[in-house]
Each structure stands twice: as C-alpha cells, then as structure tokens.
C-alpha cells in the first residue's frame, strides 16, 4: 500500500537495520583498525620492485643487462654496470637506483627481465622523512633474498625456482656432452 511518505519511511528502516546489524553481523561493520589489525594481502599484490639474490647478496641474479631500464615507462631505473680494472664488464651492477617517487608500480620491468632477477615487493609502508634523496632506493636496499621472495609469493617463487633449475640442468647437460639438443625440446627464447 503506497502512501505519500512511504519512501522516506523505507529509507529509515534500511538505516535502522544497518545500525542494529553493525553490532551483530560481521559484514555490516567493515572497519579494519590499522595499525593494530592489518588486512592480509593476496599473493599477487604489488608495490615496488626489489632484486632477488640466491644464498648470498653477492650471488644476485641481476646481470645489469639494462632491459628493465629501457622498458620502464616513467624511466625510474638507473643502472651502471660494474667493470674490473681492465674495463671488462663483470656481469652485475655497480649502481642500481630506483626512484620510488617516480615508479608507478606497473610491473613491466618484472615481465621483461630475462633472468627473473627483479620482482615486485608488497611492502607498502614506505614513508620517509624527506622528499628527494630519501625516496631513492639504492642497491643495498633493493637486494632481498630468495627466502623472502618465497615468503611473500610462494606459488610464483616455486615456479620461478623450478624454471631456473630446469634451465641450469639443461645447461649442465650441454656442457657435459656437447651433443645437439634432443628432438622435442624447444630452444630458449627471451
């Protein structure tokens, strides 16, 4: 039965239902009291990049090939290859800077890296006390271990480990017996 004013009363009943329900039903009180409670992030969640090393920081996977620097849309990565006394390039970076005030967390650097060296972190508490130098992350800050990578992204890390393991085995087989690759295996493409 419709009478003038019914719409207003219906609205009030909805509000009362939400008011009473907020004491009893869990999905009518959606506040998460940060910083005491935190929402657990899903695995794919991404914020800023970091570099992966296996076992020791010296054994970083990055070879300073500069592909991520070229592909980064806002150009926030700066890499300088390490060279020895004679000028021959050693395959790891001397300088690897990411400016996190410029980085737009697009994940393109992760997709194009051929060595699975740079991956996305999910740490969002990156407040600093300054705006310029403090927001530039250098190589020591960026290096994090493979165990850390397993902790934040278990499924992806195990897949990457399996892939690298398979590649290492194939390379070992090729070195031991320099025979042409067996039919059926596809050559690696980048």
């Amino acid at each position: 039965m419709k009478f003038p004013g019914k719409g207003l009363l219906d609205g009030v009943f909805v509000t009362i239902r939400n008011f009473v329900g907020s004491y009893f039903e869990k999905d009518r009180l959606v506040t998460v009291q940060y910083p005491e409670e935190r929402v657990s992030l899903p695995e794919n969640s991404r914020t800023f990049p970091f570099l992966v090393y296996d076992d020791e920081p010296d054994k970083m996977r990055c070879t300073a090939c500069k592909i991520c620097e070229a592909e980064c849309p806002p150009q926030c990565i700066y890499i300088v290859m390490d060279r020895d006394e004679k000028g021959k390039p050693l395959q790891h970076p001397k300088v690897f800077d990411i400016d996190i005030s410029v980085c737009m967390q697009c994940q393109i650097c992760v997709e194009v890296c051929p060595f699975d060296a740079i991956k996305m972190d999910n740490d969002y508490e990156k407040s600093r006390y300054g705006r310029f130098d403090e927001l530039m992350e250098h190589l020591p800050d960026l290096l994090k271990s493979n165990e850390y990578y397993h902790k934040i992204k278990p499924i992806e890390a195990t897949a990457v480990d399996a892939k690298l393991q398979a590649a290492a085995e194939r390379k070992a087989k090729k070195l031991v017996s320099p025979a042409p690759p067996a039919p059926g295996t596809t050559p690696e493409t980048d």
Binding site: V30, N44, R46
Partner: peptide, 25 residues
C-alpha cells in the same frame, strides 16, 4: 559508504588478480 562497502569486495578481487586495486595494468 554503502556503495564503497560493495566496491571494496570487487576491488579486493582485482588486487588478487592483477596485483593492484585501482591501477590494474
């Protein structure tokens, strides 16, 4: 706030899928 309560569920799904709530890429 009622609309945002529902939007949060969808945006959480986007985070689970693509990694970011709003800038999905």
């Amino acid at each position: 706030l009622y609309a945002f309560r529902e939007r949060e569920k969808i945006v959480d799904l986007f985070e689970a899928v693509s990694g970011s709530r709003m800038m999905c890429n």
